[in-house]
Design a protein around this nucleic acid. Sequence first.
RNA 1: UGGGGGAUCGUCUAACGGCAGGACGGAGGACUCUGACUCCUCUAGUCUAGGUUCGAAUCCUAGUCCCCCAGCCA
Length: 555
Amino acid sequence: MDVNATTPSNFIRAIIDQDLAEGKHKGIVTRFPPEPNGYLHIGHAKSICLNFGLAKDYGGRCHLRFDDTNPEKEDVEYIESIMEDVRWLGFDWGEHLYFASDYFEQLYEFAVELIKQGKAYVCELSADEIREYRGTLTEPGKDSPYRNRSVEENLELFERMKNGEFEEGSHVLRAKIDMSSPNVVMRDPVIYRIKKVPHHRTGDKWCIYPMYDFTHCLSDAIEGITHSICTLEFENNRPLYEWILEQVFPKPHPQQIEFARLNLSCTMMSKRKLLQLVQQGIVSGWDDPRMPTLAGLRRRGFTPAAIRDFCERIGVAKANSVVDYSLLEHCLREDLNNTAPRTMAVLRPLKVVIENYPEGQIEYLEAVNNPNDPAAGTRLVPFAREIYIERDDFMLDPPKGFFRLAPGREVRLRFAYFIKCTDVVYGADGSVVELRAVYDPETKGGSAPDGRKVKATLHWVAAEHSLPAEVRLYDQLFTKEDPNEGDFMENLNPNSLEVVQDARVELNMREVRPGDKFQFERLGYFCVDLDSTPDRLVFNRTVSLKDSWAKMQKK
RNA sequence: UGGGGGAUCGUCUAACGGCAGGACGGAGGACUCUGACUCCUCUAGUCUAGGUUCGAAUCCUAGUCCCCCAGCCA
């Protein structure tokens, strides 16, 4: 299949096409630059797919660069999870793994160069004072009293900053640009600050750390990035990105291009808020299957292919938008439908005794593993006198439109026989505890020689010859399309996790391993959870099948 | 109220002066040993008002609404 034929165009591709046509670049180099201060989420996947995808399609390369300039917030735990997630998504940075912290020495030299040009100065205003001097959105700022120090003095002071002679917060290095710029970003931005904090990679070597604006453009330039793709909120910073490169780096310069980050309905991407959910125990961890993190989606049973397909379909533009969660589910179902082997599982078992089936007899019936993939073959499923069906598949007094089992009614058991419900056994509380039925031996395999039809086919498992399992049913973590409408903690869905303790699955599931994915026929796609053991099988519902009966009932 | 962006079916996204198209969702139908899948049909849109033009989503003018920026975060 020709991937390019289905890859939608977007404004970034248009820019690249033009740059290439004009000979501005011979090839393209992009980068994915996460800060290692949290786990990657589906929003990052959009950026990863974009940057790595562009590099692939244009025969260029994409770097993985950790933007690790703030040791207070960063940790190696995150570096490892990020690399794992990018790889899992299906992308390969080859040899091009970089860390902004590897450039600290060069960055320092660039800062010195800026000072020598008279374009940076050491400022001794406090953080509060800097804020006051900055002015407001509508009023210009005013010059720092330290703005006109001599180059020599700045050089000496900056070196002393580096040597640890000053306390945190007492001195910063600022770019000397324009305190009355209508763009607040350009009002002598801080480019170096003192942090007497060890860095997870450079240890105690530095006590001054460069700021994002100074680091990012130069890191891009050092690596020869041609197109530096970031999100919309950095649009205000672009003049600074260009200003810094203009002063100290030879052309050509990388070009910053901004696009709208992904928003998904009923979920949110704020790292801070996701961290809060983890820390307050609302979810079990960064990889809780309800989390929009890649680790969470992976544990939930999402496939990399589905996420990549999703990222392609949502497109790339500059307008803020909220993508409907149903599109993600669609991509997931489409992939799983083609790849997940089928099996039968009964979530809420209702025993059926087939009275005319010989006691003690076991038959092994052939079942198709995947009707969409003949290569998946078949398996044998044990059938016996006592079976379980889904409670929802039986109704005492069925309404119009209900095709499944009811007293006196005949249905098909998938891959097995037609059965007819002959009697209902009630418990002390009047609830249905068991059904009695008869089967038609002539219908083995699922069709009747006399050509009679049934309206429904039910999934089932043999009572004895099946395995108990725990099944975790997930729903949206939030009840509102926009969880941030009001306080997100008050929009939590109290029913986002339902644990079914006594489900039954086919005997064939004995050998499954965490991560294995299946379609439980008529129910949905499920995967084996990390908590699963051979003695205690645990499945996560990844996503349900579309259910037109459920939809009808809602009306 | 300064500056920077943005506005196309319910949602996401194409069309770069020349038939407003696709996908998701929704509705209806066909098929069916999964009420799944698949297939078919339908649904529904250019923020507003002017202007330029044979012709405007696209160009111009004036509005409206939304987002971002006043961290020693990224």
